[in-house]
């Protein structure tokens, strides 16, 4: 599993690991029952401390995105499609809310925001 630690990002190592694994699970890139690398193995590859990976995995466990098998390691949990999208929707809404707040602070109004949003979606196609 190839993760990337950004040199520039102000996000903590733990956040960076968490966000990337979570995104891959939610986007189905990592299928159900996919075996995640061992805590120490990932720590070694990313050159981070064991405790950092441990905490990231703990968060994923709490979110129900992964499960642990005693003595075996961590696996991607079976998520109903509805769950995947529900989690994804919730996450997107949170992220979008922050962006919207920032944009409003910078003085953009609703019309402008809608235009930007439509344009961005249009580019996707």
């Amino acid at each position: 599993m190839l993760l990337h630690i950004s040199e520039q990002s102000s996000a903590t190592l733990q956040e960076q690991i968490l966000v990337q694994i979570r995104a891959r699970i939610l986007s189905n890139e990592l299928a159900t029952d996919f075996a995640l690398p061992s805590i120490r193995g990932l720590a070694k590859d990313l050159k981070v401390s064991v405790i950092t990976v441990q905490r990231a995995y703990d968060t994923l466990l709490n979110e129900g995105l992964i499960y642990a098998r005693r003595g075996k390691g961590f696996y991607v949990a079976a998520l109903p499609e509805s769950d995947r999208s529900a989690v994804a929707v919730a996450r997107f809404e949170t992220n979008l809310q922050q962006l919207l707040d920032a944009a409003r602070r910078d003085g953009l109004d609703e019309t402008q925001l809608q235009q930007i949003f439509t344009r961005a979606l249009g580019k996707e196609d």
């Binding site: 903590t12 190592l13 981070v48 401390s49 405790i51 950092t52």
Partner: peptide
């Protein structure tokens, strides 16, 4: 120190 406490 824990390594990541320094690298953070």
């Amino acid at each position: 120190a824990i390594k990541d406490d320094l690298t953070e």
